[in-house]
């Protein structure tokens, strides 16, 4: 028999640094596959966030830059402007991108920086132990909203980031995908690859939001967590394209 699927060797030969059933491992794989398919591993600078996926640097055999919490889009801007022909992949979680780093992502998009952003939305702060994120759903429990998020208590509404960024003219491409099943994982890979190809063609900012499970901090089994992504998260965060070729879809 012929080998038809093997590990991507951009990852070091080790288990992923994440909890069992964590979506980061799947999404890392899709990023690695996309980078490999376009033959850019040697030319990639992976911009890690602060949050669980800061640990990407322990796992990925890529040049990695790890800036301060939320500032990754600003640092990515610096990298890309200094090395315009490199492939800059921005990887951020929801706390990093949609809370502390809101200004940085909005303005990096608005300048139309020619970079590719992968935004992992798992509706929780994972690294710090399960606090409420800007994207935590209404009613969803976290250590800092133990009764479930309640906007009426001043805890705010879950932010739909693709919709928020959609109106910015600097945004060339935006799509929201999910990793709740294999079909959607493959769609995620396709979206990331498109984002990377856009960058290589110097088209501007590409933004891929990926809905992802965090079984440990959600207090669910990995399988239940996938169901939660599909039934609850995707209901509030609709999947699909938001911007293609610079035009609102």
């Amino acid at each position: 028999m012929k080998k038809v699927y093997e590990r991507n060797n951009i990852a070091l030969d080790m288990p992923s640094p994440y909890c069992p059933g964590c979506g980061h491992g799947i999404i890392h794989r899709m990023v690695m596959d996309a980078i490999k398919e376009v033959g850019q591993a040697d030319n990639t600078i992976f911009m890690a966030p602060v949050g669980c996926s800061i640990l990407a640097y322990t796992y990925l055999d890529l040049d990695v830059c790890q800036p301060a919490h939320g500032r990754t889009p600003a640092a990515a801007t610096g990298v890309k402007r200094a090395l315009p022909d490199s492939l800059v992949v921005l990887y951020q979680g929801d706390g990093d991108l949609a809370a502390i780093g809101t200004a940085e992502i909005v303005h990096a998009v608005n300048r139309g920086e020619n970079i590719t952003a992968v935004f992992v939305n798992n509706a929780i702060y994972g690294m710090t132990g399960g606090q409420m994120a800007p994207t935590t759903l209404e009613g969803q429990r976290a250590t800092t909203c133990p009764e479930g998020r309640n906007p009426m208590l001043g805890q705010g509404y879950p932010i739909r980031v693709c919709e928020l960024l959609q109106s910015l003219r600097g945004l060339y491409y935006a799509e929201r995908t999910s990793v709740h099943d294999a079909k959607n994982v493959l769609k995620t890979r396709k979206a990331i690859k498109k984002g990377i190809e856009n960058q290589m063609a110097k088209k501007g900012f590409s933004f891929i939001e990926v809905l992802s499970p965090c079984p440990v901090n959600w207090g669910m089994t990995p399988r239940k967590a996938l169901e939660y992504v599909e039934k609850e998260m995707a209901a509030y965060y609709p999947l699909g394209e938001f911007k293609v070729d610079g035009k609102i879809v």
């Binding site: 610096g78 490199s86 909005v106 303005h107």
Partner: peptide
């Protein structure tokens, strides 16, 4: 060279961080 009027001083220093990573 590159000049950017950043969105904040915080963004500006982090852009410096990024550019410096490349040796510039």
């Amino acid at each position: 060279g590159t000049f950017i009027q950043a969105e904040s001083e915080i963004a500006a220093i982090n852009m410096v961080y990024g550019a410096s990573c490349t040796g510039a």
